[in-house]
Design a protein around this nucleic acid. Sequence first.
DNA 1: ACTAGCACTCCCCCCGCCCGAGTGCTAGTC
DNA 2: GACTAGCACTCGGGCGGGGGGAGTGCTAGT
Lengths: 335, 335
Amino acid sequence: MLDDRKLAVLRAIVTDYVFSREPVGSRAIVERHNLDVSSATVRNDMAALEEEGYITHPHTSAGRIPTDKGYRLFVDRLGMMKPLSIGEKKAIAAFLSGVVDIDDIVSRTVRLLAQVTSQVAIMQYPTMTSAVVRRIDIVPLHDTRVLLILVNSSGKVSQRTIDLGVADENTVGLVRERLNEALAGMGPRRAAEMLQDFTSCLMPEVRGLASTVVAALLDILAAERSTKVVVAGINNLTQFSDEFKTSLAPILDALEEQVVLLKLLGEATSDVTVRIGQENHHVNLASASVVASSYGVDTTGAGLGVVGPTRMDYPATMASVRAVARYVSRILAER
Amino acid sequence: MLDDRKLAVLRAIVTDYVFSREPVGSRAIVERHNLDVSSATVRNDMAALEEEGYITHPHTSAGRIPTDKGYRLFVDRLGMMKPLSIGEKKAIAAFLSGVVDIDDIVSRTVRLLAQVTSQVAIMQYPTMTSAVVRRIDIVPLHDTRVLLILVNSSGKVSQRTIDLGVADENTVGLVRERLNEALAGMGPRRAAEMLQDFTSCLMPEVRGLASTVVAALLDILAAERSTKVVVAGINNLTQFSDEFKTSLAPILDALEEQVVLLKLLGEATSDVTVRIGQENHHVNLASASVVASSYGVDTTGAGLGVVGPTRMDYPATMASVRAVARYVSRILAER
DNA sequence: ACTAGCACTCCCCCCGCCCGAGTGCTAGTC
DNA sequence: GACTAGCACTCGGGCGGGGGGAGTGCTAGT
C-alpha cells in the first residue's frame, strides 16, 4: 500500500511544510528532493496518501499539508532524531551547572528547554516517590503559630503553618524528636502509615498537640504527590500565532490550568513520547503537539516537555527534550 | 484652560472608549452623556483637548481616543474608584481563606487578582525586610551533600544544597548550634554583618566547614532581597490582541523577564499607583498600563499588581488591586 | 509503470469604487 | 461672547470584479 517512494513523498511533505509553513506542491518536491521521478508521479502518490488520510488539501488548487495521522507516521517511522550541535550541548551543560537547590533546578531547566526548542516548555516538580524523609522540624513563628517543615532526601523542602494553641518549648521539642526518630529514612507511603498510630504511643498530655502536627504532616505527604508544574517561554507562542487556528487564546487557557498540564506530563515515559493534535484529547490543544519525557532517577519520577504547534520540527524537538531530560536526571542523581 | 465641560468631555471619551474600543465622535458623546450642548460645541472642546495633547485622531475623519496624557488626567482627577460589589468581596474573602503557607498565599492571590480584573496579574514574594531569622538547619542528604535551611519569622523557608566534604555529625551539629545562637531574632542586614566575623570565633578545626556554611548563608540572605515574581492570567491577554499594536509578542516577552517584572513592582507604594504607557519606560510596555500596590505589614514589603492595555477600566482595576492588597496584608498580619 | 501535456479550479492580490462617519469651518443666533 | 446649524471635505473600510499563478486531476502516449 505504502511503498518506499510514497513514504519518501510523505517525509518530503512534512519536512518542507515544517520548514516553509506553506502547503507543498508536487513540483517543489521533485525539485528539492531528488526523487528521480516526474511531478505527475508524485501527484499520483499524493492522491494515494490523501486517500489513506495522511495528507490533505486546504483547497482544490493548493499544495498538500500533513494531517495528524501523517505527522504520526512521520514520527513513528520516518523521523530520526537530529543529533544536537556541540553548541547546544555546551549551552545545556553550562546552563545547568551550579544549581543550588530543587527550585533552582526546575526553574532553570524549564527556561533552558524553552530556549533551545523555541517553544513553550513545561516541567513538573520532582516527586518524592523514591525519596525518604530526612528531617522534620517545628519552628515557632508568632504567638501560637509554628511552621512545620519536612525535608526529604532529594532536597525538597515542604512547609505548612499550623496553630498549636498554647504549647511549651519542651513538649514541642519532644514531639519533634519522636517524629524524627519514627519517620527518618522512610518513603512517603510508609511514613504516612506510621503516622496513623503515632499519637497513641505518646503520653496522654502531649497527644492533642501531636495529633495536630500529625494531621498537617499527612497533609504535606499527600500534597507531595500532586506536584506543581511550571511553565516557561510562553512568548515563543507568538511566532506561531497564525499556526493555531483562531489565535492563541485556547492554548493560553490550557496552559493556565495546572490540571491540564499535569495530565500532559502524566503519561510521559522514560523515552520521549509525542502526542499530536487530537491525541491530546483536549479541544484547546487540538492543533498542538506535546513532546514529553520523564526524568529523574526512577522512571516513576516527574515529567518535562514542550508544547508547540502540530507543525513542529519533531526530530529536533524530540532530541532536545531527551537531552535536557538526561542532563537533569544526571544532576539529580549526583546530589 | 480646561473648564468643567472640557473635563466632562474627556471623561466621556475615556469611559466610552474603554467600553466600546472604538474612537468616539462628538455626536455619540452628546447622545450618551447628557451635556446639554450641541455636537458642534463638543467638537470645539475636543479641538482644545487635542491641542493640549489629551486626545488624538487615528485619522482625519475618525472619532477621538485618549492619549497617555489623557488617561493620566483621567486617573488623577476624573476617575473615582468603583466600589467592589458584594459578590466580588465575598469571592476575594472565600478565595483567600484557608491558606496554608506563603507559597499558597502568593499563588492563590495572584490567580485571584487575575480573575477579578480579567487581566494579567503579577505578584512579588514577600520580602523579609521586617522578618527576623528564626531557625537555621543543616540536613544531610547524600554522602557529603547537605541541605542548608533558613526559616524566618514570616514563615518563609529558604534552602540551598552545599557540599561540605567529609564532616562528622558532631561538628555539623556544633556549627548549627552556634549559628542559631548567633543569628536568632536578627533581621537580614544584621545577620549578614554578624556572619562576617562568625568564623573567627570558632575553634580552628571547624573553621573550614563553617566558612562554607557561612558563604551559603550570606548567599541566601542576599537572594532574599531579589524576590521572585509570579504571573497569572496570561490567557486574559488574548482578548486584547488587537489592543496592543503589533500583537502580543512584546508584552509576552516583557512578562517572561523577572527583572522587568521586579522593576514594575519596585516603585509600588502603599496606595495604588498607576503607570500608563510610556511611563513604564519600557518599549515593550509602551501600550500597556500597570496598576500596582504594595502589600504587607510594613510598607517596604512586596508589591502586587495588574498589567493591561492602556485602554483599561482604571477605576475598577484600581479598586480591585487595592482590595486584594488589603486582604492579603490582613492575612499576613494574622499569622 | 511512468510521463508529458493540458484544461480547470480556486486562492490571493490588487484596484477602483462608493458609502458614511466624523471633522473643521463659517455664518448665524441668543 | 458663547453656542449652534449647516455644509464642504477627508479618509478609512467594505465590496466587487478581474487577472495572475500555483497546483491539481485527467488522459493519452511512451
